[in-house]
Amino acid sequence: MRAAIACFVLLASLAQGETLDRVSARVGKDAITDSALRRHLRMEAFFARATADLTSASRRKAAERLIDQILIRRELELNRFAPPAARDVEAQIGLLMKSRQEDATALGASLEHYGFSLDDLRAEILYQIMLLRFVEFRFSAGILVADSEIETAYRQEVVSEAQQRNVPPPTAEDARESIVKLLTYRKTNAALEQWLAQARQQVKIQVFEEAFR
């Protein structure tokens, strides 16, 4: 089998012409192409207002993120998760423009610089909203933070950080809400990671390392 793969790759590289695109990873019968990886990295760069890092290492890490994305998209489809309303997406775009201090024209130019259209942005934001709602519904809703955990976090993190900064720490009561949010966020993340790990066990996932050489 490995000989066949090596032979395939060698022949492909020896053939005339440049490689335009290829399968870089797979989740079951869903392919993650090299162009999808680049696109994902360009979108990240757009949001970060940075230059897209399209190196092999970066694309390799992006592959893992897209694998997770596919697993989540499958779960959304399986559960017939309702997509957000168009107005919710437009509202988020509005917030984005406000945070970037860009009007519609400037936003369009910015998107074009990274190779995207406004529709591409809408699709990306729609997915992000669905992801947040899915995580909230599936994981956050069932999370409980115990008083002991709040107390421990207060002592070990809030007080400790304040001491390092030589400032008086806020009272436990004042800090409670933000501590609960932080701990809920962490637990949600952990639950999501655990679910993703289990989901990966149930489907064939393959990364084509030769695509990153």
Partner: peptide, 10 residues
């Protein structure tokens, strides 16, 4: 039906 696909252009 595919294990791998590479698109190349000349």
């Amino acid at each position: 039906r595919y294990e791998d696909i590479i698109a190349s252009g000349e």
